[in-house]
Write a protein that binds this DNA or RNA. Structure first.
Lengths: 338, 338
DNA sequence: CGGGAAAGTGGGAGCGTTCCCACAATGACC
DNA sequence: GGTCATTGTGGGAACGCTCCCACTTTCCCG
C-alpha cells in the first residue's frame, strides 16, 4: 500500500506538506499542490481514514440511527441525508434498531458510536433522559428528526398542525363520527408524532363542537397491519365512524384494506385520510397530509454538518411545511348502507 | 478520554494483556480477564476504532452499496444484513447510489471505501469489468446480492424460474395474450434480474406454444410510475393483452393503477402478476412470486463475514427459493367488455 | 529429578496520519 | 538597509491501539 510518505518521497517534499496539499489547506504553493496531486494520482495513493482519524480525532463519518429502514419514511430521510453527506465527503454509518429490542440500548450505551463518528442523526426517536445524557456527553453535534426536544437541534413538521389539517378536512366534508388510528404516546418508541397528532385530532373535534364518543381512538402501531386491525375494530362498532384519520399512511392503507374486507366502500361508506404522502399513497388514491420527507433528511444533514464547521453554532429547531393532498379516499358522508 | 493504558495502569498489567483480555483472546487467565473487564467498565473505557483499525488493519465495518434505499426491496435486504452484522459486532457503512449519477463512479473508484471497510456487499448491481477489477484489487471479500456473476460470491433467487412461475400461472389460467413489463437489460444499472426475468417470460410462452406478437414487452424501469406508463401503453393497444406479468411488484402496482385509470377491472378485464411480494402487495391483493428478501440480506452478510473469518473460503453462489402467492389480481380471462 | 511443553504476561516497535513548532526565503515599508 | 510580516516548507512527536517476540512460571511425564 502506498502511504503518504511514498508520495512525499516522490515529489521530494515532507509528509507535512503533502498532507496539507492533499487536504486543500492553505499555506501550500500552487505548484507544489499540483505536483502532489499528480503524484498521488499516479501512485494510486489512497489515504487511510483510520490513521487520519487517529491523528485528527475526526472520522468524517456520521451515524444515523433509525427505527426501521424498511419503513419508507425512514428510508427516504436516510436517502436525503446521505446525499448531503456524500456531497460533503462524509460517510454514513447506519444503525437500524428494528428487530432486536436490545439494539437501542446497545447503540446508545455500549456502541463504539462514541469514538467512531463526528456527529449523530437520530430519526423519530425521542431519546430518553439517560440517552440524552449519553448523547450530550459525546460532545458531538446531534440532530433529531421528527421529534420536538427543546434545547436540541431538531428537524420536523408541525405534527399537531398536520393532524389538524387532516381532521379539519374530514370535518369540513361534514363528517361527525371521526375515528383516529394512532400509536402509543409513550414507551420505548415514543416520539413526538403520536401524541402531537392525537392532540391535533382531539382539538379539532373539540373546536368543531363534535362530541368524541369513547373508543374511537385506536392504536395502529404505525404499521399497515396494525392499522388494519385497528380499523377492523372501529368499523365493526354499532356506531360505525364515517371517517377515519390515520396518523400515518401505512396505517391508512391498512384501514383501506379493512374496509374492503368488511365490504365497505371508500369513500362512500367510510372516508380515510393519512399523513406522510407515502410513495404508495397515490396508488391507493389516498388522501393525505404530505410532508417533505426527503427534505427533512437533507436539512438535518446540512444542520449537523454546519455544527461541525461553524464554531459559533447553536441548535436550531427547523419546522418544515405540510400540505393536504386530496385524492379519492375522502368525500362527504353518504349512501351509508347501514 | 480514558485509553487502554489507563485500564492497564488500573489493573497493574501491561496494555498488551489488557488488549487481549478485552478482545476475548486466549492466553489470559480468567482472573485477569475478569479484573480487566471490571476495570474497563468502571473507568468507562471505550476503545478507539481508529487506533484499532490502524494497528490491526481491520475496521469491523462492512460497506453496503445500494442503488436506492427508498426502494423497499433494498431497504429490506439492508435490514437483513444489518441484523447479522450487528450481532457479530460489525458496523454498516451505507452507500446509496440514488440521485447522483456520478455517485457510482465515485464509490467504486475514488471512495475511501478501500481502506475503510473489511468487506463489501453490493446490492443488485452488476459491477462493470472495471469495477470488478477495482473490487478484487481491494483484496477484501465481496458478496453480490441479486446478480449472477460466476467466480464471485452471490446471493440471489433464480430469476428465470421466478418469471417462469409467474408466466406459467397466467398461461395455466388460460391467458393467451400475455404482456411483459420489465426493465433495461443493459446499461448502467444492469443487473441479472431484468434479462433473466425476460428470458423466463419468453421461454414460458414459447413452451406453451403461444405466439408473441411484437410490442407486448414494455420497459417499466422497475418503478411504479414506469410500470404505470408501460401498462398504459399496453392496455391502449387494439389487441389488448388479457394479462400482464410485471417483473417487479412496484411495476405491477403501477399497472394496477393504469388499469383503473382506463376503467378496466382487475382481474376480470386484465390479470396482473408481479415479483417480490412487496410489503404492500397484500394490500393491493396482488398476486406475485415471493422472494425471501430479508433472508437474502442475512445470507449475504453471513457469507461475507465467513469470508473474513475462515481462511479456506471460496466464493459460493447461493440461490434462495421463490414461491407463487396467488391473491386476487389474477383469474382466468373473461367478461371482457371490449 | 530433569527436560520440555504450555500458559500467562510484558516490552516496545510499528500502523499512517495530523499538527505544532521552527525555520528560511521573500517582499513591503519606512 | 533594517525590521517585520507573510508565505512555504520540514522535523518529529503524538494519536491509541495491535502484535511479535521474549520471558517467567507452572505443570507434566518419563
Amino acid at each position: 500500500m502506498t502511504g503518504i510518505r511514498d508520495v512525499a518521497r516522490d515529489v521530494e517534499m515532507s509528509t507535512a506538506t503533502v498532507s496539507r496539499a492533499l487536504r486543500g489547506l492553505r499555506g501550500v504553493s500552487e505548484t507544489t499542490r499540483g505536483r502532489v496531486l499528480e503524484s498521488a494520482q499516479r501512485l494510486g495513493y489512497v489515504p487511510s481514514p483510520s490513521a487520519a482519524g487517529l491523528a485528527s480525532g475526526q472520522t468524517r463519518t456520521v451515524a444515523v440511527i433509525v427505527p426501521r429502514v424498511t419503513q419508507w419514511f425512514f428510508a427516504a430521510v436516510v436517502q436525503g441525508a446521505e446525499e448531503v453527506l456524500r456531497e460533503r465527503g462524509y460517510d454514513l454509518l447506519l444503525y437500524n434498531l428494528a428487530g432486536d429490542p436490545s439494539a437501542r440500548h446497545r447503540v446508545f450505551e455500549t456502541s463504539l458510536l462514541m469514538k467512531r463518528v463526528d456527529a449523530v442523526l437520530v430519526l423519530s426517536l425521542k431519546p430518553s433522559p439517560g440517552e440524552r445524557d449519553r448523547l450530550s456527553r459525546l460532545g458531538r453535534p446531534v440532530t433529531i428528526v421528527g421529534a420536538d426536544l427543546p434545547g436540541w437541534a431538531t428537524v420536523r413538521i408541525d405534527d399537531e398542525e398536520a393532524a389538524t389539517t387532516a381532521t379539519r378536512h374530514l370535518v369540513d366534508l361534514g363528517h361527525e363520527r371521526i375515528a383516529y388510528i394512532g400509536g402509543a404516546t409513550s414507551g420505548v418508541l415514543d416520539f413526538t408524532a403520536p401524541s402531537a397528532r392525537l392532540a391535533g385530532y382531539r382539538r379539532t373535534l373539540d373546536r368543531a363542537g363534535l362530541e368524541q364518543p369513547p373508543g374511537l381512538e385506536e392504536d395502529g402501531e404505525f404499521t399497515a397491519a396494525g392499522g388494519q386491525a385497528a380499523a377492523l375494530r372501529l368499523l365493526a362498532r354499532p356506531d360505525r365512524p364515517t371517517a377515519i384519520f390515520a396518523a400515518s399512511d401505512e396505517m391508512a392503507i391498512g384501514a383501506l384494506r379493512a374496509a374492503r374486507e368488511l365490504g365497505l366502500r371508500v369513500p362512500e361508506d367510510v372516508s380515510v385520510v393519512g399523513v406522510d404522502d407515502h410513495e404508495m399513497a397515490r396508488y391507493f388514491d389516498l388522501t393525505t397530509v404530505a410532508q417533505p420527507v426527503h427534505e427533512q433528511g437533507r436539512v438535518a444533514a446540512t444542520q449537523v454538518l454546519a455544527a461541525l464547521t461553524d464554531d459559533d453554532w447553536t441548535p436550531e429547531q427547523v419546522i418544515l411545511p405540510t400540505e393536504l393532498v386530496v385524492r379519492r379516499t375522502t368525500s362527504r358522508p353518504g349512501q351509508t348502507r347501514t
